[in-house]
Design a protein around this nucleic acid. Structure first.
Lengths: 211, 211
DNA sequence: TGATTTAATAAACAGTGTTTAGTATATTTG
DNA sequence: CAAATATACTAAACACTGTTTATTAAATCA
């Protein structure tokens, strides 16, 4: 009975179509510009149809959050090839911040927005890629501290320190909090210099690592 | 001709009334629950009237952001009395994070939301209290580094490091990113422990300061 | 008192997420 | 094959949102 399978395929096709168009709108107009009604006209279905494939808007955002994690993982793929754990940590930090600044709409979904998290709690779904990234960073910190004989430091807490600092840098920069505490002549350049210097400061403070 | 003055007073009174009720709604229902129409019914005027006193919703949020800075400054008042710059820095960090967690709606307005910043750019208004806080923190870092003869460290960048880390901690915690990377048994307690440990880690990393 | 300025609003505009009731079409059953 | 059922889809409504415009009522000025 291939009909059920075909229907299943068609259902998945429309789900994919919705997510594909949602992705396009997200990139073009950001999370605020992504509305169910706009998405509906874009895929040439009525708004109500979308609710036959997704429970609500937050579920769509949740699915897109996962797409964002894939994107980020891709941009960080080469990190695993590095020998030196300190270089790995620095690269993770650098790429994390770069991703946050250049792909803010994805980043916002993954680490800042409340909407997709609503769905995580409701479904008790997992945040697999986020946890994996955090665990990997912690393992790098463990290696680094082991090499430096800093055995009193908790690598998990160090990872949290790094994550928080990087996340703070990204969000404060994107929401224009840096351009007001510094002379905001050329926001972009000032911002990049501040972030670069702060990342260096972080590496020196945590690991006495001068790049 | 006291009529003009009286009118000016009455105008200010209504402005104050709007902001007072806005504050009440913000505390009760958060920034998402604060709508112009709800605010209008609350002050017993029509929605259109609000636009005679404020340019748009963002201007109201901008004014409330400034109220938030006052609140935060009050909670940090005793810091200035501390002798040791390291104790000052730790207290600023501790109180900053505490404020962010306990008064999230205010914090969100001050350091996370995009809306009030729209207005800052439009009006070229200042972010005085935020800048003052940042400068004070930087001056504390300068003192601390001077006492420790760490003259190669830039205190402004250290302040940015501290600020970013604290901001990151607060926002990741509030948006439930911590409860998913740790076993989320008791979100509140896990979260508080993580934040406490991370703050300690920050103080050790930056200033070799064990509390 | 009559003219003018000011304050306030009803109603509309252009959106938003979501639900419900109803209609075509496709599939299954007798 | 025809009747019954199940599926896919949508029009319209509900309850909201921020903001603008035309109009009315009241206060002030001449």
């Amino acid at each position: 009975m291939g009909i059920a399978e075909r229907k299943e395929r068609e259902k998945q096709d429309i789900k994919d179509l919705i997510l594909l168009k949602a992705k396009e709108i997200l990139i073009k107009e950001g999370q605020d510009g992504l509305s169910i009604r706009k998405l509906a006209t874009e895929i040439e279905y009525s708004p109500a149809t979308i609710y036959l494939y997704f429970q609500d808007k937050d579920e769509i955002l949740y699915q897109m959050m996962n797409m964002g994690f894939e994107k980020m993982a891709q941009s960080m793929a080469h990190v695993y090839t590095l020998e030196d754990p300190l270089k790995r940590i620095f690269e993770i930090g650098r790429l994390y911040i770069e991703f946050g600044l250049n792909e803010w709409e994805w980043y916002h979904l993954m680490f800042n927005s409340a909407s997709p998290m609503n769905h995580i709690e409701r479904c008790k779904a997992e945040w697999g890629p986020g946890i994996a990234m955090y665990d990997y960073l912690a393992s790098c910190c463990k290696e680094a501290y082991a090499l430096q004989n800093k055995l009193d430091r908790d690598p998990k807490i160090a990872a949290l320190h790094l994550w928080s600092a990087a996340h703070g840098l990204v969000t404060l920069a994107v929401t224009h909090r840096f351009c007001v505490v510094e002379d905001n002549a050329h926001e972009e350049t000032v911002r990049n210099k501040l972030i670069d210097d702060t990342l260096k400061h972080i590496m020196i403070s945590l690991f006495d690592y001068k790049i």
